[in-house]
């Protein structure tokens, strides 16, 4: 059993402690915005926030949580799709297939929580998500637009 605070709600789930948080969120909690892409923390499609910091949930065992942490998924990032990152993404029409974008958006939003005005070097170091459609050029523009909007 594990108790999670996710997007402001407390839920209790009956899973083994070593179950990755990604699969608990997707299969027990029923929020499918965070995606499975690699299972080894390489691609970042599963990125969520734990206490505001980006975490690759596919390798984060649910048993490592105390139950006090605030977990945020893409579904809980904003009330009306109006987080600055979401607004910038809409304005620049960034998603292509979109499968990696919940993770990309959460990675960027998490970076901006800690570093509201990242340099290009900061972006290079912190945003390491894979996008096979190749939105990377617009993602960099989107980050800068989101900074302006914040």
């Amino acid at each position: 059993m594990a108790t999670l605070k996710i997007n402001g709600e407390t839920v209790t789930v009956d899973v083994a402690d070593d179950t990755p948080l990604l699969w608990v969120i997707r299969e027990q909690v029923g929020l499918t915005g965070a995606k499975y892409g690699c299972g080894i923390a390489q691609c970042g499609t599963c990125t969520i926030h734990v206490d505001g910091s980006p975490v690759r949930s596919c390798v984060y065992p649910v048993g490592a949580l105390s139950g006090e942490e605030e977990i945020t998924t893409i579904e809980g990032l904003s009330e009306e799709a109006n987080h600055p990152v979401q607004e910038a993404w809409a304005e620049l029409d960034i998603p292509q297939c979109g499968y990696c974008q919940p993770g990309m958006i959460m990675a960027v939003a998490g970076m901006l929580n800690d570093n509201p005005n990242p340099s290009d070097e900061d972006i290079d170091a912190e945003i390491t998500n894979i996008c096979r459609c190749g939105t990377l050029a617009r993602v960099r523009k989107g980050i800068k637009l989101a900074v302006e909007k914040s």
């Binding site: 499918t32 965070a34 499975y36 979401q86 809409a90 029409d93």
Partner: peptide
């Protein structure tokens, strides 16, 4: 024109095959 399929992709609401319930 802006794409017609963006809105759901920004909020985790786009249902992909892997998400089918």
């Amino acid at each position: 024109k802006k794409r017609l399929d963006t809105a759901d992709k920004l909020i985790g609401a786009q249902v992909y095959g892997a998400d089918i319930g």
